[in-house]
Amino acid sequence: MTIRFVLLVNKQGQTRLAQYYEYLTIEERRALEGEIVRKCLARPDNQCSFVEHRNYKVIYRRYASLFFLVGVDGEENELAILEFIHCVVETMDRYFGNVCELDIMFHLEKAHFMLEEMVMNGCVVETNKQNILHPIQLMDKTT
């Protein structure tokens, strides 16, 4: 019951952020990302947000031109992961102010910092936006 990876992908299928909580080689990652993106992006809106792929269950949600994909193992609560994705987006919104693809691209490390505060070793650890952003904002102030 852990998160295996978090992926942010744009409408063209280009990866914009990738965080894995288990080791995959570069080739494996590229292949996996390609397969999953192809599968998820092809699904119409009215279909459910869960796709089973290999031994992963991918839970995805689309925000404008960005797809958030989270890969989990079989035992995870799918609806909770959807809620988690929403929480990630809200957090990024609060930090960047209406987040868009470019914000994440040009501030990749910031996006990672946020994710790092929220998820550790595949488990959700913090969902309060203020707590998540506090260390990052502190760092911004000092530099």
Binding site: T15, L17, I26, E109, H112
Partner: peptide
């Protein structure tokens, strides 16, 4: 290091 991360994300060694 930040650049490296970006390159890593794109799937390069």
């Amino acid at each position: 290091v930040a650049k490296l991360m970006f390159i890593h994300m794109l799937g390069y060694p």
